[in-house]
C-alpha cells in the first residue's frame, strides 16, 4: 500500500526517531467533522479468537483509550469467592483459590449485573452470581494394571482439571438458563488445577461475579490488545545482486522481495523491491551496513494504526471492541449527566 505523501510520518533514522513536520490543513473548528469524514476502519484478518484491523485517520489518544479500556474496563465473569469445604490436597487453600480464580469462564458478562459492594460473603443473587462446585476425591484404582507405575493407571482422579468444575444454578437460574451447563461451563477443559494421591480430596464451592480488569487481571477479557503504526519502507536507490539479498535479510520475512531483471543490453541482474511492509518489525538492522544505509527510508504512518485484539474466548474480539467503545461513551454520558443535573 503506497501511502499518500501528505500523511504525517514518523521517520526512523539510524540514531533517531522523529515526527515529520506536517502542515495543519484542517481548520480547527471542524475537528469532529473531520474525524467523521476521515475515519476508516478495515478488518484485515479474523481467526477464531483473534482480530486484526486497521484504524485510519484516528488520533492515537483515542486508539490508546480503546486499548486501555479493552484491557482494564471491559467486564467479564470470573470466580471471585471460594468456599472450601475440604481440602486435603497438597495445595494450600489460598493457592488453590487463586488458581481457581484465574480459570476463564464461558459465561457472557452481559447477562449479569455487577455485585453490590459491601455484601456479605454468603449472600448471593441470581442476577449477579454464578455458583460452581468442585468435588474430586482421589482413590486407588481397583483394577490397576499390574506392571504400570503411571499415576493415571494406578489411581482414579490423580489429576484435577478445570472440567471438573460444575455449574450449580442459584434460585431461578435453572429455568432462566436451560442450557446453563454448557453456557456457563469453563472455557478450557484441560487446565490442570492440582495433582492428587489416594486419600486426597478437594470439595469447594465457588462464586463467580462480574468484574473489570482494573480490579483484578482475571477479569480482563483480552489476552493482549495491542496496536502499532503502519510501517512504510522506501528504497531511494536501486539495490542489486548481493546487496539485494543482504537487504532482504535485514527485514522481517516477506517484507522485501528480490526480482530478476534484465538491462536493455540483455544483462541479467537481481533487484530488491519492497513487497509488503505491513508485518515488518521495524528493527533498524539495515543501518548496520555502510552500503545500504543511504538506500532506505524507513517511516511509520502516524495516523494508520494496526490494531490487534486477542480475546480470551468468552466473547468474540469484534464484540469486545464495540463494548470498549461503549464503555468510553458511557464515561462521557455519566459526566455529562452530572454536569446537567448536579452542576459543578
Amino acid at each position: 500500500m503506497e501511502a499518500k505523501s501528505e500523511n504525517p510520518r514518523w521517520v526512523m533514522r539510524e540514531h533517531e526517531v522523529f515526527k515529520e513536520y506536517a502542515r495543519e490543513t484542517s481548520s480547527k473548528a471542524t475537528a469532529l467533522k473531520n474525524y467523521i469524514q476521515e475515519l476508516r476502519i478495515e478488518i484485515v484478518r479474523e481467526e477464531d479468537k483473534e482480530l486484526e484491523f486497521d484504524i485510519i485517520g484516528c488520533d492515537i489518544s483515542l486508539v490508546n483509550a480503546f486499548r486501555r479500556i479493552l484491557i482494564s474496563e471491559v467486564p467479564s465473569m470470573a470466580i471471585d469467592k471460594v468456599f472450601i469445604i475440604n481440602n486435603t490436597s497438597l495445595l494450600q487453600d489460598e493457592v488453590l483459590a487463586h488458581r481457581l480464580g484465574l480459570i476463564p469462564l464461558r459465561a457472557d458478562p452481559r447477562l449479569f449485573e455487577y455485585p453490590p459492594s459491601g455484601r456479605k460473603d454468603e449472600e448471593v443473587s441470581e442476577q449477579d452470581t454464578l455458583k460452581y462446585e468442585l468435588k474430586v476425591t482421589c482413590t486407588t484404582h481397583p483394577q490397576a494394571p499390574k506392571y504400570s507405575r503411571l499415576p493415571e493407571d494406578m489411581y482414579r482422579n490423580s489429576k484435577v482439571y478445570s472440567k471438573d468444575i460444575k455449574w450449580v444454578p442459584i434460585g431461578r437460574q435453572g429455568d432462566m438458563f436451560p442450557h446453563g451447563t454448557e453456557q456457563f461451563s469453563v472455557l478450557e477443559n484441560d487446565i490442570l488445577i492440582c495433582k492428587m494421591r489416594p486419600g486426597h480430596e478437594i470439595h469447594a464451592f465457588m462464586h463467580a461475579v462480574k468484574g473489570i480488569g482494573k480490579d483484578h487481571a482475571k477479569f480482563s477479557p483480552v489476552a493482549p490488545a495491542r496496536y502499532r503504526l503502519m510501517p512504510a519502507i522506501e528504497l531511494t536507490k536501486p539495490v542489486r545482486n548481493e546487496d539485494a539479498d543482504l537487504l532482504q535479510s535485514c527485514f522481517s520475512p516477506a517484507v522485501i522481495e528480490v526480482v530478476e531483471k534484465e538491462t536493455s543490453s540483455g544483462e541479467k541482474y537481481r533487484e530488491a523491491r519492497v513487497k509488503n511492509a505491513r508485518y515488518d518489525s521495524c528493527a533498524r538492522n539495515v543501518y548496520r551496513y555502510e552500503q545500504l544505509k543511504d538506500c532506505v527510508k524507513m517511516t511509520r504512518i502516524s495516523d494508520h494504526v494496526i490494531f490487534n485484539i486477542e480475546s480470551v474466548g468468552t466473547l468474540p474480539p469484534a464484540v469486545l471492541f464495540t463494548e470498549a467503545v461503549k464503555v468510553l461513551k458511557n464515561k462521557c454520558r455519566i459526566f455529562l449527566a452530572e454536569l446537567e443535573h448536579a452542576g459543578v
Partner: peptide, 9 residues
C-alpha cells in the same frame, strides 16, 4: 467525544 464513539462503532 460521545459522538466520536458513536461514529467509531
Amino acid at each position: 467525544l460521545e459522538r466520536i464513539c458513536d461514529h467509531t462503532i
